[in-house]
């Protein structure tokens, strides 16, 4: 087990201060290995934020949320993309490899093992109910993570309005993601630029 620098204690709310030195490759691999093992029911981006921003201070909230946006915009699973973003930002190509392989190692083995055992597990009573409960809790983890990010990510009225518009369009009205992004990103850049111009 790799030895890691001390954590921000779990009892302190808020966010660890950002550390200056880039973490060692084995620390990156270990942290993403533990994320990969724990992220049942989805919510990988929430797990990554918890470890990388909140507990270890490997990057600022602002850098993280920017990376989250890139991970969402580019094709591929958001959690996997975000792992590659974090690894790349911290330690370049090798950091990306450490984060990616660390995060996928256990889930790949687990999914293949579960696949082999599935015909026996499928009909055990209660398994489906437990999975549904876990899924409901995992959705809550995503929402909680979103709420935490609003503290630093949403500071101006235009940002709050834009965020709510995206929730309504994509989450409620079912507007396609590509269309929503094509409208929202230019609009957001314009609004951010305008706010800057007014401020200076």
């Amino acid at each position: 087990m790799a030895r890691l620098p001390p954590l921000a204690p779990d009892v302190t709310p808020g966010v660890a201060p950002v550390v200056a030195a880039a973490p060692a490759l084995r620390d990156i691999a270990w942290v993403f290995l533990s994320i990969g093992m724990q992220s049942f029911g989805g919510g990988m981006t929430a797990w990554i934020r918890r470890d990388v921003v909140q507990r270890r201070g490997w990057m600022s909230e602002q850098t993280f949320v920017g990376g989250l946006a890139l991970a969402q915009i580019t094709p591929g699973a958001n959690g996997v993309n975000l792992a590659v973003f974090v690894g790349t930002t911290l330690r370049g190509r090798l950091g990306a490899l450490a984060a990616l392989s660390g995060m996928l190692l256990v889930p790949v083995i687990a999914v293949l093992a579960l696949g082999a055992a599935f015909t026996h597990v499928r009909d055990v009573p209660g398994v489906e109910s437990a999975m549904a409960g876990l899924g409901a809790a995992a959705i809550g983890m995503n929402v909680a993570n979103g709420l935490r990010m609003t503290r630093r990510g949403i500071r101006k009225p235009w940002a709050a309005v834009l965020m709510l518009a995206i929730v309504a369009a994509v989450g409620i009205a079912g507007v396609s993601l590509l269309l929503a992004l094509a409208v929202a990103i230019p609009l957001a850049l314009w609004l951010a630029g305008r706010a800057e111009g007014v401020g200076s």
């Binding site: 602002q62 989250l68 969402q72 609003t150 965020m163």
Partner: peptide
Amino acid sequence: ERALAPVAIGLIFASA
């Protein structure tokens, strides 16, 4: 980053 933050956070709530 300041522009994309509300987009990223909005998409988290939308996917939930």
